[in-house]
Computed example of a mutant assay.
Amino acid sequence: MRIDLSGKTAVVTGSTEGIGFAIAKGLAEAGAAVIVNGRKSATVEAAVERLRQIAPAQKHRGVASDLGVASGCAALVAAAPAADILVNNLGMYGPKDFFDTSDEDWERYFAVNVMSGVRLSRSYLPQMRENGWGRVLFVSSESGLNIPVEMIHYGVMKTAQLALSRGLAKRMAGSGVTVNAILPGPTLSEGVAEMLEAERRKSGKPIEIVATEFVTSQRPTSIIQRVASVEEVANLAVYLASPLSSATTGAGLRVDGGVAESLI
Rank of each mutant, 00 (worst) to 15 (best):
V177G: 10
E107V: 01
A111M: 11
R166Y: 08
D100A: 13
G132S: 09
S123D: 13
F110G: 00
G155W: 06
V156L: 12
G91T: 12
L125A: 15
N88M: 03
A160W: 04
A80D: 09
A80Y: 06
F110R: 13
S143W: 10
S102I: 02
I152V: 15
L86F: 10
S102P: 03
E104A: 15
T159M: 13
Y109H: 13
A111E: 15
L183G: 02
P95R: 14
S189K: 07
F98C: 09
A83F: 05
D103L: 08
A163F: 01
W133D: 04
M92Q: 13
M151Q: 15
N146V: 11
Y93N: 13
D97W: 00
V192S: 03
Y109A: 12
N180S: 09
Y154G: 10
S141F: 02
G155L: 07
S189M: 04
E130F: 02
Y109T: 12
I147P: 04
S116W: 05
M128D: 08
Y93T: 11
S121W: 05
N89E: 09
R119Q: 11
R135E: 02
A173G: 12
T159V: 03
M128T: 00
M157H: 07
T178C: 06
D97M: 02
F98R: 09
K170L: 10
V149P: 00
K170I: 05
K170T: 03
N89I: 02
S123K: 06
A181D: 01
Q127L: 05
W106N: 12
D103G: 00
Y154R: 07
Y154L: 06
G117Y: 09
Y154K: 07
T101E: 02
D97F: 01
Q127A: 15
E142T: 12
S116H: 07
M92E: 05
N113P: 00
